[in-house]
C-alpha cells in the first residue's frame, strides 16, 4: 500500500543522505522524496512517499526514528490529510489544437506559461491521482514532464 511519511530532521549536512541511505541499505521503496525548510529554521521537513506491507511501513518508521538527526516521524496517510504535488508539462504548440487549449484554459487547477520556442508549459497543482489523470490526457503530446513528488499534512 502507498504511504506518506513526514520526517522532521536537523538541518545538518548529511542528514538527507542518512535518510536516503537507510532506504537503499534496507531495500525500502521510495516513490518520491521532497525536502525543504520547515517552520523551524534549524530543521527541514521531508516528505517520503513509499509503499509496502504494514510490517515494512512499521520498520521504515522505526528505522527513521532511530536516526539520530531525525526529530519526528509521522505516517500521515492513516489519518485525514491533504496531499498535493506540482507537475510541469512541456508541449509543442503544433501538438495542441484550439479545443484542447480551451480545455486547459478553463481548468482552474492549470496555469499556462508560454515559452519563446513555440512551446507551452502547463503547470498543475493537485492531488497525485488528479495529476495522474491529467498526465494521461497529455501522454501523447508531452515533450517533457517534471514532477515534484508529493507533500502532505494531516488535516484532523
Amino acid at each position: 500500500m502507498r504511504h506518506i511519511i513526514s520526517v522532521l530532521l536537523e538541518n545538518e549536512s548529511g542528514a538527507l543522505s542518512r535518510v536516503a541511505g537507510l532506504f537503499s541499505a534496507r531495500s525500502f521503496n521510495i516513490e518520491s522524496l521532497s525536502v525543504a525548510p520547515s517552520e523551524d529554521n534549524t530543521a527541514s521537513r521531508m516528505t517520503i512517499v513509499t509503499s509496502g506491507s504494514e510490517n515494512v511501513i512499521e520498520q521504515i518508521v522505526k528505522q527513521l526514528d532511530k536516526l539520530i538527526d531525525v526529530i519526528e516521524v509521522s505516517e500521515i496517510t492513516s489519518n485525514e490529510h491533504v496531499e498535493r504535488e506540482i507537475v510541469f508539462v512541456k508541449i509543442e504548440d503544433k501538438s495542441i489544437d484550439k479545443k484542447m487549449m480551451d480545455n486547459f484554459s478553463k481548468n482552474e487547477f492549470l496555469k499556462i506559461h508560454k515559452t519563446k520556442n513555440n512551446e507551452i508549459i502547463i503547470e498543475c497543482v493537485d492531488s497525485p491521482s488528479k495529476i495522474n489523470e491529467f498526465l494521461k490526457s497529455v501522454k501523447n503530446i508531452a515533450v517533457k514532464i517534471v514532477r515534484s513528488g508529493s507533500v502532505g499534512i494531516n488535516s484532523n
Binding site: 549536512s13 548529511g14 543522505s17 542518512r18 541511505g21 541499505a25 539520530i68 538527526d69
Partner: peptide, 14 residues
C-alpha cells in the same frame, strides 16, 4: 569518512 561509515555507525560527525 562520514559518507563511507554512515551505514555502519550509530551516528557520525564531522
Amino acid at each position: 569518512t562520514v559518507g563511507i561509515t554512515r551505514p555502519c555507525v550509530k551516528h557520525n560527525f564531522m
